[in-house]
């Protein structure tokens, strides 16, 4: 099972002829992802790593029946690329690009909701179902198939956690990076519900950070609906964090009490989540629960 993505998912790479698109298309192909087409307007007819390139997503979908697309185009072109993918009937849209204006992200999100498209990102590492397929840039070699689902607002911190799990013999069902922007596609609650309904997943890790209210909404849902054990690490849990200052991610900014890691950890703990102060503690906590 796993969520959102499996070995049969057919994927288009938008921006496949660019440096990033080309590199990551190769790494996805090597991992076993069914990358069936690339799209770069004006470069239709070319090939990248043996994958045919089309001028439009519509042409690519008509030729391949792809249902997912991953966007690597520069930020100013993301809005148009995303709208194009949605209009062409793509059902899973992953935007890796960082630096997309928030108004554009919000409009993409609205259109996705109206058309039942699953949106992941922008400014995210994508997702991976270990041993089967990956969309995006999560390094495949650190993952291992198993029963731990991960949903995260971060990229490299997620890799850190995945690696710790794998080294401890704990495999993953699916790992999803939601993205570091304040407005993004699917959020913690949606991913949590998918993991709850997924037979393969037995443990769920939530990786949050300062800013926003996603963790609070997750806590509400966990209290009411999630029966599987949830573990959480919130980045920015030290007293070093300066309110009002953005820490790398556009969404990582403390504005008011609710945005602090402390507030988020408290509310998650109250909802029954196992919260940890360092990401490296997660494997032992999972082992404690499993034994």
């Amino acid at each position: 099972m796993a969520i959102l993505l499996d070995e049969n998912t057919k994927v288009i790479v938008q921006g496949i002829t660019g440096k990033q698109g080309r590199f990551h298309a190769k790494s996805m192909l090597d991992y076993g992802t069914k990358v069936v087409a690339g799209v770069t307007p004006g470069k239709g007819g070319e090939e990248v790593h043996g994958v045919p390139v089309f001028d439009s997503v519509k042409e690519a979908v008509d030729a391949t029946n792809a249902e997912a697309s991953v966007i690597f185009v520069p930020a100013p072109f993301v809005y148009s690329a995303a709208m194009e993918a949605i209009d062409a009937g793509i059902k899973l849209l992953v935007i890796i690009t960082e630096g997309v204006p928030v108004k554009d992200s919000a409009k993409i999100r609205k259109k996705c909701k109206e058309t039942n498209v699953q949106l992941i990102g922008p400014n995210c590492p994508g997702l991976i179902t270990p041993g089967k397929s990956k969309i995006g840039i999560i390094p495949g070699q650190i993952c291992m198939p198993g029963n731990v689902g991960i949903v995260s607002r971060s990229g490299t911190l997620t890799y850190e956690i995945i690696q710790n799990l794998t080294l401890n013999g704990l495999g993953q069902s699916t790992c999803v990076g939601l993205g570091g922007d304040p407005v993004h596609g699917i959020d913690f609650t949606e991913a949590l519900e998918m993991f709850e309904n997924d037979e393969q997943t037995e443990h769920i890790i939530l990786v949050g950070e300062i800013g926003g209210t996603g963790e609070q909404e997750a806590a509400e849902l966990i209290k009411e609906k999630i029966t599987k054990p949830v573990y959480a690490f919130i980045a920015g849990n030290g007293s070093w964090v300066k309110p009002g200052k953005q820490m790398g991610h556009a969404g990582a900014i403390v504005q008011g009490e609710s945005g602090t890691a402390k507030a988020k950890m408290e509310i998650l703990s109250k909802a029954g989540v196992v919260t940890v102060r360092t990401p490296q503690e997660i494997p032992e906590k999972i082992k404690e629960k499993s034994s």
Partner: peptide, 28 residues
């Protein structure tokens, strides 16, 4: 992305989440 803080150890890390977690760990 660089933000000056008041502590004693300078950090260099990859990615915003890992950078924050690195700061957290020094405090830990």
């Amino acid at each position: 992305s660089y933000v000056e803080l008041e502590g004693e150890i300078g950090i260099i890390a990859c990615g915003a989440g890992l950078s924050m977690a690195t700061c957290d760990l020094l405090e830990y």
